[in-house]
Write a protein that binds this DNA or RNA. Structure first.
Lengths: 199, 199
DNA sequence: AACGAACTGGCAGCTACTGTCAATAAGGCA
DNA sequence: TGCCTTATTGACAGTAGCTGCCAGTTCGTT
């Protein structure tokens, strides 16, 4: 059962808005483009923009498929093997044109703004935060104490994942992203195990 | 050489605004209090509020002493002993009434909003982000590779530090904060060293 | 006391964001 | 196909966060 017309229209609009917005941002800079302009250039009303994305930064955190009921990457987490999960998650990035169906690579066009615009960055942190909350719950279910679960989840997402992504971006995205993640995880292991305070 | 009159005035105003704001927030909730109200209740103009704090969320990330040229906790980081540094940082929290001179505990009155208001939380993440950048540089100076330095710095601040703080808060701040930090660091060590993917 | 610099307040204005309601388009059904 | 119901959109008005600008005041200094 494919998507209904309504769902397709909505998905089209979302993608159109995202692309248009990135075009405008690339052209004139993030803060010099207003929602009104994005909406006009995409053929929707500002009100509709907000219905879809919630905020201007939502452009960078919204999952188009979630908007039609299909969450993309959730439940793909194996709490017993976080390094492996991380590896699998990042495998989707960087290689090939896009994430899941559609071949859309909007998120990677937008990465620049995630790194450079504080407000966008903050929004992404908010999203990571929610993800960390979910992961914490999973780890608790897997037997970790609440405190341990929380610290592990946050370190993986904010430290190993985002940290690697950032360094990868800073280095011009030449070396494979996976290298950075492996590097980072190894560093954490050294640091926590080897350091003088082994606590 | 004590503070000049101007510096004292400014510092007084900052503290007065912070206290007043927290009073109002506790009374009616964060989002139902406007800057205009805070300013009026503190006896300053809204324009001045923005000069001091930059944003509404700045109330939670501003360091009053920095406003008069005295940064408080910077340069207290020993990149060779992060667990120890963390321990020292948190030693200032929770015990006793306040941070540094003045016996002010505004930040701990505000913790509730840091945890519960997404926008405040996001602002704190922004501040952590900057701190992480500084720590990353220190670790690089100490010989770590950029990628490793970045991941370690971020894991410590977003994972071990903020994660412990959050769990401590969620548990009602009964057990000492240090326990949470130690717990978390130990968990990280187990996780990265012990797991099947030792990568 | 007088001068220059720092600081404050008031005003005007922009833009992000929300509630509400009428208009419209899609889906289901006879 | 034509009609009815319901989801979705657009227009309007309004709130509040935030900034630039300038005039007036306060403070530090000589």
């Amino acid at each position: 059962m494919p998507l209904t017309l309504r769902q397709r229209n909505r998905l089209d609009a979302i993608h159109r808005i995202m692309d248009t917005a990135m075009d405008l941002f690339d052209e004139r800079g993030y803060s010099d483009v207003t929602i009104e302009e994005i909406a006009a250039a995409s053929g929707v009303s500002p009100r509709t923009f907000y219905r879809y994305f919630g905020t201007k930064e939502g452009l960078f955190t919204a999952d188009p498929l979630a908007a039609v009921g299909l969450g993309s990457y959730s439940g793909q987490i194996d709490p017993g093997d976080l390094p492996g999960t991380l590896e699998r998650l990042i495998a989707r990035i960087g290689e090939g044109p896009g994430v899941s169906e559609g071949g859309r690579r909007t998120s990677w066009r937008g990465m620049r703004y995630v790194m450079e615009e504080p407000s966008v960055r903050a929004a992404v942190y908010g999203a990571l935060d929610e993800e960390a909350e979910r992961l914490t719950a999973l780890l608790r279910d897997a037997g970790e104490s609440p405190a341990r679960a929380r610290v592990i989840a946050r370190s993986y997402l904010f430290g190993a994942y985002f940290g690697a992504l950032e360094q990868w971006h800073l280095d011009g995205r030449s070396r494979p992203l996976g290298d950075y993640v492996r590097d980072g995880l190894a560093a954490l292991a050294d640091q926590t195990a080897g350091g003088r305070g082994q606590a």
